[in-house]
Design a protein around this nucleic acid. Structure first.
Lengths: 244, 244
DNA sequence: CGCTTCCTTGAGTAAATTCAAGACTTGTGG
DNA sequence: CCACAAGTCTTGAATTTACTCAAGGAAGCG
C-alpha cells in the first residue's frame, strides 16, 4: 500500500498554491475552494481516468506524476502529456477526455466535484482566466513536443526529456546545488513519451552517462554532472545558453 | 499579385460565421465585431507573423490555409499546426507566439486590432468561452498529432493527413459526392507536418495512388477513390469505421 | 525559351527497431 | 536465509524503415 495523504492541507500552506488553477484566487475565493476540495491518492500504476469515461471530478496534481496516454488498437502507445505538481486534470465543458490518465508514481490529487467546480468557474473570473492560461501552457508544451517527436534524434529526445525534468523540478527545490533526481518513469514509459523503444532509451541514457553528462546512483536516480553540455545535446540552441 | 479580398463581408453572410471565434455571439455582439474588423490578404508563401514579434492583430482565417512552424537552429523544421478557414490566430494575454505563421496558399484573414479585441473579450463571455473552446480543440488536435508523429508509419501518416483534409474540407462542401480536392501544401511542407522527408511523402502518395485509394488529376489535385480503405490505412481503427 | 521550383524515382546508407539473451532488483514464500 | 518469480533494465546482432544523395522530368513564369 502506498502512503496515504488524504489529510486536507489548508490552501495557505499548499505547495502548489501559486502555480495551480487557484493561483489567481484571493482569500475569499480560496475559502470556497477549500470547503469543497478533497484529496485522493493513487498508487504508482493505477488508472486515474479512463478514456471516454465521464469525469467525476477535476483535480490539481499536488504531488507525484501522472501521465496522459493514447493507445492504438494494435497496442502502440504514445504519451501525450506528463502531469507534474500544479498541473490540472479536466477542462471546462468537456466531461470526457480522449486519453487515459494514469499515476506513474504515487500521486495525490486535490479534487473538486465536476459539477460544483463548473458552476464555480462560471462565477469566478480568476478561475476561468487561470484555466485558460493553463490550457495555453499545455498547448505550447504539446507543440514543443511535436518538434521533438517529429524532428529530434534519439539522443536529443532523451536529453530534452531530462532537461525538462530538471527545469520543472527546480520549482520545488531550494536554490543552489543540484540535488539528486529520480526518473518518474520506467524506460518503457519514457520510450512512449519520446516516440522511441525502451531499448533505445536505455542505450541513450547510458551513452549520456558514458559521456559524463549524467551519473546514476541506481537505475532510477541520477545527477546531472554537466548541465550546459546537457543543454547542448537537446538540439534546442546552436550554442548552449547555460541554464543555471 | 494575388486576388485581393479586402471588401468587408457582412458577418451575416460570412462563411465561417458559425465556427469561428464569433460563433456564439448574438446580433448585437456581432455588430461590434463587424465595426472593428478588417480584412487582410496574403499571397502563398508570405509570412503572416514571425516568431517572437508582438502581434499587431488577432484574426480568423476566412479562406485559404496558413501554417504554424517551428524551426531548429540547423534548419530542421516541424509544422505544429495547420490553420484552415474558421481557425484563429492569437490568444488572450499572449502578445507573442513561439512559432512562425505563414500563408501556404493565398489567405484572407478577418483581423481585429490586438488591444481592442482584448478589451472586447474581457467584456464578452461569448467570445472568451469560444476562445477557450478553440484552444481546447487545438490542444486535442495537437495531441492527436503527437500520436501520429511518435508512433505512426510513413504510410499511416500520409493517409491520416489526407483523411484530415477530407474531413475538414467537407464542412464547406455540399453533401453528396466527393469533389476533387487540392493539396494545400507542397511535398516538403507535408513532410514538415508529418515528420518525414519530402521524398518519403512523394513515395507514399504514389503508393496510395498505385493501390487505388487516391487518384490524381495533377500533382496537387486528387480524388479519394476508396474512402473506407483510406481510413483503414490511417491505423486509427482496427476495422475501418466507414466515414461517409 | 530558359529559368526556377516542385516533384519523382533509384541506389546506397544510417538510425533506430526488432529479436534475443541475460543481469539486476524487489518481493514472496519455503 | 535462500530460492524463485516477476518486472525492469542492459547489451548485442540482425533487420528494417525511412533518410540521404543524386539525377532527371514536369510545370509555371518571366
Amino acid at each position: 500500500m502506498s502512503i496515504q495523504f488524504n489529510t486536507k492541507v489548508d490552501c495557505q500552506y499548499c505547495p502548489i498554491r501559486h502555480r495551480a488553477v487557484c493561483a489567481r484566487c484571493d482569500d475569499s475565493e480560496l475559502e470556497v475552494l477549500n470547503a469543497i476540495k478533497t484529496y485522493r491518492s493513487f498508487e504508482a500504476g493505477q488508472p486515474i481516468v479512463w478514456r471516454g469515461e465521464p469525469l467525476q471530478f477535476v483535480a490539481s496534481v499536488v504531488s507525484g506524476v501522472a501521465s496522459l496516454t493514447k493507445t492504438m488498437e494494435d497496442g502502440r502507445t504514445q504519451m501525450v502529456g506528463l502531469l507534474l505538481p500544479s498541473d490540472f486534470i479536466g477542462r471546462p465543458g468537456r466531461r470526457e477526455i480522449e486519453f487515459d490518465v494514469t499515476a506513474t508514481t504515487d500521486v495525490t490529487l486535490c479534487c473538486f466535484e465536476y459539477k460544483a467546480f463548473e458552476t464555480l468557474v462560471n462565477d469566478t473570473p480568476h478561475l476561468s482566466q487561470r484555466l485558460m492560461e493553463l490550457a495555453l501552457d499545455e498547448l505550447d508544451a504539446a507543440r514543443e513536443w511535436m518538434l521533438l517527436l517529429g524532428r529530434k534524434t534519439a539522443r536529443e529526445k532523451v536529453a530534452t526529456f531530462i532537461e525538462m525534468l530538471v527545469r520543472r523540478s527546480k520549482v520545488d527545490d531550494i536554490e543552489g546545488n543540484r540535488p539528486e533526481m529520480a526518473l518518474p518513469l520506467t524506460r518503457e514509459q519514457m520510450a512512449n513519451y519520446l516516440g522511441l523503444t525502451l531499448e533505445t532509451v536505455s542505450r541513450q541514457l547510458n551513452a549520456l552517462k558514458k559521456d559524463g553528462i549524467l551519473s546514476f546512483t541506481d537505475r532510477r536516480n541520477f545527477n546531472v554532472t554537466d548541465i550546459s553540455q546537457l543543454h547542448l545535446e537537446t538540439g534546442d540552441d546552436a550554442d548552449g545558453g547555460v541554464i543555471s
